[in-house]
């Protein structure tokens, strides 16, 4: 990476590390991959704190599941990362049942367009995620018991 500006070198390094790209020229590939893995594990831990039921739904497989999904996706913050993953899993019919209520509650409480920070909803909402129903009125969210 000699001869390029620091800004260009740093941008190339971050992109390689977070978007699943090859190890940049001149770097030790074993160590670079170790850093990539450590980064994914750290992110998995942070997302698990924001989305405890999503992580719990995968049990011991959580870090691997998250890392496989996140390896080509730079972080948007742990709230959005978990949300994006939960929506992806829902589309694939693979959201763990234990995580459905957590996602439905958040979908009912917040408006999230998938591209910018979630905002609280100003109006009442009902949202369904993988069979779980959540109702939000005036900021309060609950899961009505199914008949």
């Amino acid at each position: 990476m000699t001869g390029r500006s620091l800004a260009d070198q740093q941008a190339a390094l971050v992109e390689a590390l977070t978007a699943g790209r090859p190890v940049p020229e001149g770097f030790d590939s074993f160590r670079f991959e170790a850093a990539r893995l450590a980064l994914l594990r750290k992110r998995a831990g942070e997302v698990a704190r924001q989305w405890p039921m999503l992580a719990a739904g995968f049990g011991d497989r959580w870090k691997r599941e998250f890392s496989g999904w996140a390896v080509t996706r730079p972080t948007q913050g742990s709230l959005r990362d978990g949300w994006d993953l939960a929506r992806d899993l829902t589309r694939r019919g693979a959201l763990p049942p234990a995580a459905a209520a957590e996602l439905a509650e958040r979908e009912a409480a917040w408006h999230y367009d998938g591209a910018s920070s979630p905002r609280s909803r100003r109006f009442p909402a009902v949202r369904i995620a993988a069979g779980a129903v959540a109702v939000q009125v005036a900021g309060r969210v609950w899961l009505p018991r199914r008949p």
Binding site: S5, L6, A7, Q9, Q10, A11, A12, L13, V14, E15, L17, T18, A19, A38, L39, K42, R43, P74, T75, Q76, G77
Partner: peptide
Amino acid sequence: AFVRAGGIEAGHLLPLPRTREAVDA
């Protein structure tokens, strides 16, 4: 350290090249 570049968050503290340009930054 640096944690972002080119509009992308690394999500962690990353090392700098030990160069004079990095010292300046």
